[in-house]
């Protein structure tokens, strides 16, 4: 890693983290450009949080190397800490302190004082829409407010890179949407956002993303690239009754590459649109009532279902 220092906000190469005999992060390499919103996706326990915690200097890697804001993640953790903001899924705030006391505390710990602290406090209260509640105890706020305040506290020192670990867990959909609007605003100002999530709709908001499965990165790219690259063939949406029987039936057909439940329908990947007739025929011989079969645009969820099934089969 020689020419990375200024081009990239984050670089990781061959990163490994083991806890005893368990490998949480297995040979991960990636780069994140400055000002990018980079999504880190995967199920619980896939190794997302562990990777973020290594980058933030909370954990030391077992092997491998990396840089954050151009600084080494093993030797320069203390310097890195002044340049990054971190927000965990627990919105770690002091519930028995007021909104402004929380901001002041984190501000001063980061060395933000006086006039600058006043400015930053005003900015956070504005951004999180908390001006009227500035003297409320944090514990009395609803989840959505707490989440925005936590984001504010993580940004009180104007970091270059923001690490968000499942920032929307347990928050209502309206607040989630507002939160993503905030992330866009922040990214427009040039802050790099490194965010983990397991909500697929959130992944669509990212500039680029990596999918993690069992400690490994199994896909990396923009949402459009991933859809194109990993859904080979045509995606069909099938509404049929009874659904479980339809799923079993379609799974046994040679023309079908993938079948997965998707809400009240089945998503079926086939070679081309001409395969629809053979699907109909097969379902009808099994006495399954077909409501509709339509071609569909693949979502990221389709991509990930396909990728994870593929990875599982390979493993």
């Amino acid at each position: 890693m020689t020419l990375t220092s200024n081009e990239y906000a984050v670089t990781i190469s061959d990163l490994v983290k083991k806890f005893g005999s368990f490998t949480a992060v297995d040979d991960v390499s990636l780069t994140v450009g400055r000002g990018e919103i980079f999504g880190f996706l995967g199920a619980n326990g896939a190794g997302k949080s562990t990777t973020i915690r290594i980058l933030c200097g909370i954990l030391a890697p077992t092997s491998g190397s990396g840089t954050v804001a151009g600084m080494d993640i093993v030797r320069e953790t203390e310097k890195i800490k002044t340049r990054i903001g971190y927000m965990s899924q627990r919105f770690s705030l002091y519930e028995d302190l007021t909104v402004t006391e929380n901001i002041k505390f984190f501000g001063e710990v980061y060395g933000v004082y006086g006039e600058r602290l006043a400015q930053r406090t005003a900015w956070i209260l504005e951004m999180a829409n908390l001006r009227e509640r500035r003297d409320s105890l944090t514990g009395e706020l609803a989840m959505g407010w707490k989440q925005r305040l936590a984001l504010g506290c993580a940004m009180v020192h104007e970091p270059d890179i923001l690490f968000l670990d499942e920032p929307t867990a347990g928050v209502d959909p309206a607040s989630r949407r507002r939160f993503w609007e905030l992330i866009y605003t922040v990214a427009e100002q040039g802050v790099t956002v490194f965010v983990t999530t397991h909500y697929m709709d959130e992944a669509e908001h990212c500039d680029r993303m990596a999918l993690m499965h069992r400690g490994r990165i199994i896909a990396l790219g923009t949402p459009a690239e991933l859809k194109e690259r990993y859904i080979a063939g045509t995606l069909l949406e099938v509404w049929a009754e009874p659904m479980m029987a339809a799923l079993e039936c379609l799974n046994s057909l040679p023309v079908v590459r993938e079948v997965a439940m998707f809400g009240s329908a089945l998503h079926v990947v086939v070679g081309s649109l001409e395969d629809v007739d053979s699907l109909r025929a097969a379902l009808e011989t099994m006495d399954i009532r077909i409501e509709r079969i339509e071609p569909a645009r693949p979502s990221l969820e389709d991509v990930f279902v396909a990728l994870i099934e593929h990875a599982e089969r390979g493993a």
Binding site: C56, G57, I58, Y86, S88, S92, L93, Y94, G111
Partner: peptide, 14 residues
């Protein structure tokens, strides 16, 4: 328990 210790570890506090 409430996770703020981890938050503090990420700050420049030694």
């Amino acid at each position: 328990e409430i996770g703020t210790l981890e938050q503090l570890v990420v700050t420049p506090l030694s």
